[in-house]
Amino acid sequence: MELKKYNLFFLYQETFALTKRLFIQLKRRPSTLLAGILQPIIWLFLFGALFSKAPEGFLPGVDSYGNFLGAGLIVFTAFSGALNSGLPLMFDREFGFLNRLLVAPLTSRLSIVLSAFFYITILSFVQSIVIMIVSYVLGYGWPNLYGLGIVFTTLILLVLFVTSISLCLAFILPGHIELIALIFVINLPLLFASTALAPISFMPNWLGWLASLNPLTFAIEPIRTAYTQTMDLELVALHAPYGDLTCKTCISILFYLTVISLIIIRPLLNRKLT
């Protein structure tokens, strides 16, 4: 019992130290944080303006395009941050810093993974809150307390799902060039093949299918619904070609995807970290 208590404290000590290191890096090199905030805000202004004169009722269930876009940009920001989460680990691998962690008697090397999750989750939350505030100032609304709960739950699931994939890639790929190239290839196509910028009803059939199978869509739609003020988990959030999905179903799918990805990457992380 005493040993378990110590192990838990040691796990906390390790995870805290590893997370603190990532935040010190962020503090001294804040460009990642700033770029992660600025990019979606610029998109919000530009895309919001692009369709500002669209006819009323142009988009189902929202007053303006900016209102529609907000959820997509929140998810895209969290997604991009999580997708990049493997980069620090990749640099640690390449420069040998990972060896410093691996020769230490860590209670569990899970702390290396946990620290990446904590870091990206907190970073995504900060970036999302800034985007939400800017959206609010621009008149695109603010979710109620229940809606906020949905927004952050969805973001945590998305970050866990994408971060686990990114960490996995950081161990599989030979170097940071390959990882950056892959991130570059995945990032924007996944955004465009989701409901971040347009509803499925605007898309050709094939793209509609792609978007309705895209994990980003399962995160975007509950957050979009959270902005309607009539938040109900049983509300239909997504009119997919294969049928209507409620908020609860979307979040459940995201949850299962996260669990499956964690189960899949576990053997790889075990092999690489033991």
Binding site: E14, A17, G96, F97, R100, V103, P105
Partner: peptide
């Protein structure tokens, strides 16, 4: 727990100060 290791290629975190690095390492060794 028994060993200390000094690698051939010194891998330091360029962003941390020396003291912060030692503090970080101390936490990894509990």
């Amino acid at each position: 727990e028994l060993i200390g290791y000094v690698a051939q290629d010194v891998a330091l975190d360029k962003i941390l100060t020396g003291r912060e690095l030692l503090d970080f390492q101390s936490d990894l060794y509990h």
